[in-house]
Design a protein around this nucleic acid. Structure first.
Lengths: 346, 346
DNA sequence: ACAGGGCCTGTGACCGGTTACAGTGAGCCT
DNA sequence: AGGCTCACTGTAACCGGTCACAGGCCCTGT
């Protein structure tokens, strides 16, 4: 291929080298490379051959400079790291995004912005033109980072609706409300009447919507809404355990728990068993997400399947749309109930 | 800040805008930006102010084009995805690398190259000048991808020694051999004499070295090396379970198992319990890595702590060295035994 | 015969930085 | 006074692409 003089730092061929080699102008080479305009078959062939002979690949920075596009997308994490990395959901989403981006010849830049210093660095980086767009993993509506990015005009797609930014930021969410409703209706169908819930943070759409679905189900079946049966967590196992602790003292008569995440459900399971309640005998438990966790808890969790691979794919699709200038859009992917031993079919 | 005419696409200020604003030449602005050469305090001040006034940030692509550096590093996964994403070790390493890179103002590009198509795309991308270097996560020595990257002159640092490339590719590894040895010596001290091992793939240094450490311990204490007590796995839980199955039929008298990863140890635990062996009563089990898994198995695993956060940090340090032109170097970080219930202290 | 259009190609002006080089003036020494 | 260094600054030439624009050539229609 390229004759390498030993000891000499190997110099990459440029578009002009290829042009000289092919006996055409460098503009023609560029045309062949990008499939633009009309180029004669003969020229195409000789350029192709010259490229093969020289081992030419385009310099990505020069291209980015000229086109104004970088070909990379940031995958932005704003949560304290442990929450995200311990969460199998997160892995699925990351893998899905990497896949979807790679399919479109885009690359994934991973950014972690949990400390204040990291956050301001992230804003500078993201609004500095390094990336074409941002995939936002777990948006809290009040986050100033959001406002700064929106202000800088960076294309964003969030995982989950962003409260207060519905018209500005595209998002992809599970059908949280109806998923939660079907989970709770499953419990009602099994004869439960004193159903508690451990829901997510009130500043995240997922938390709000899943709580709403819980309430929908209760009212639709004439059951009372008892605020002492509602607790908030931060999606983590620990917060689920803590919430369950509180619920047990505040509403000891509960006969079912709907947790807005599998991790919180797992925490709840542990506390219930420690308190001597049999699952599902005394208390039925349903989670949300159908993460890797759900099948391995004891007993395995009945849960609402949240198709995160699908979500990741849609996020990337939407982001390329936003970059192309289309208006923001929020879309929803359907969920489905997965029945396991923690709340078997009635 | 920047006066934005509504409806006009906002144009970012360039270095020449700043120069005009500050009343100096653009070379001076560049000098202030990079802290090069001598610049008068007065000029520095007026440039600083002009930057603040215009909200200028340098165009990264122009900078990369001029300097030949991209400021980004690839984090390359070559294993089938599920192996890596299910593995808590992987998360720790990724988080550590992201942190270490961010501290040096470098960005992390995540590349997954498991299918053949992805692999060739990855090679083209990585040798195409998009990144300054590569962090290689789980190198198999025969992998053609390795040869191609080395051939293209891409700076690489691997996690774990790369067999056959010791002189070419820098690497950071745990002290696998002595870690394994101390684990097995812990079992010997507890009175075990028929110790089996589930080790890693023979084309990975971690597998080879941990097996070597196991053998070191046995010979040092005058115990026989019985090949029927050795099985290979691929680090995963499933492979650990399968290996344990085989060991139980082939060497049913075993009284301890040293597994080269926590995941394999967890698989082994499950099979042992299913076979009616009490752990640690009948069989003691020791793992390797001290991953998140180890503390949550039943019983919790005694294991060798593998400080992956530290490894990630050293990998990044080494990579910057390699990029700067220093010769390849393999370094080792120490391990330590963490004693839990699966093999309590004698 | 010549105007006009469809193909195809080359020139040159960008994109927005970095940096080699030349130069300027002030201060100091001999 | 002349030469020299030192501290600083500006000009211009890159880096390696993209793309608007201006032709050139050949074929067709009148």
């Amino acid at each position: 291929m390229i004759p390498v003089v030993p000891g000499t730092p190997r110099k990459r061929p440029t578009i002009r080298d290829v042009a000289r080699e092919a006996g055409v102008s460098y503009a023609t080479v560029s045309r062949v490379l990008n499939g633009r305009d009309w180029v004669s078959p003969a020229a195409v062939r000789s350029v192709r051959e010259a490229i093969a002979r020289t081992g030419y690949t385009a310099n990505p920075h020069a291209r980015s400079l000229a086109t104004g596009r970088s070909g990379s997308i940031a995958f932005l994490l704003t949560e304290p790291q442990h929450l995200l990395f311990e969460d199998p959901n997160f892995s699925v989403l990351l893998r899905g995004a990497a896949q979807a981006l790679s399919d479109r010849s885009l690359t994934l830049i991973l950014m972690i912005a949990s400390t204040p210093a990291e956050r301001s660095r992230a804003v500078a980086y993201l609004s500095g033109g390094h990336v074409d767009g941002v995939l936002l993993v777990s948006p809290h509506s009040g986050d100033p980072l959001l406002a700064q990015l929106v202000d800088a005009g960076v294309p964003i797609v969030a995982c989950g609706r962003v409260l207060g930014y519905e018209q500005t930021i595209s998002s992809v969410a599970a059908d949280d409300r109806s998923g939660a409703r079907s989970a709770v209706e499953h419990l009602i169908a099994a004869g439960c009447t004193r159903i508690a819930t451990i829901t997510g943070p009130p500043d995240m759409a997922g938390g709000v919507d899943r709580l709403q679905g819980y309430q929908d189900a209760l009212t639709a079946h004439g059951l009372p809404l008892d605020p002492s049966r509602v607790e908030h967590g931060d999606w983590s196992r620990e917060s689920g355990a803590a919430a369950m602790q509180t619920l047990l003292t505040r509403a000891p008569a509960l006969d079912a728990v709907f947790a807005a995440s599998d991790a919180m459900a797992a925490g709840a399971l542990r506390v219930l068993r420690a308190a001597g309640r049999d699952v599902p005998g005394d208390v039925r438990v349903v989670g949300f997400d159908d993460s890797g966790l759900a099948a391995t808890t004891e007993p395995p969790l009945t849960t609402v399947r949240h198709p995160l691979d699908r979500v990741a794919d849609e996020m990337v699709r939407l982001l390329t749309d936003v970059i192309a200038g289309r208006t923001p859009l929020s879309i929803t992917v359907p969920t489905s109930l997965v029945v396991r031993a923690s709340s078997p079919a009635p």
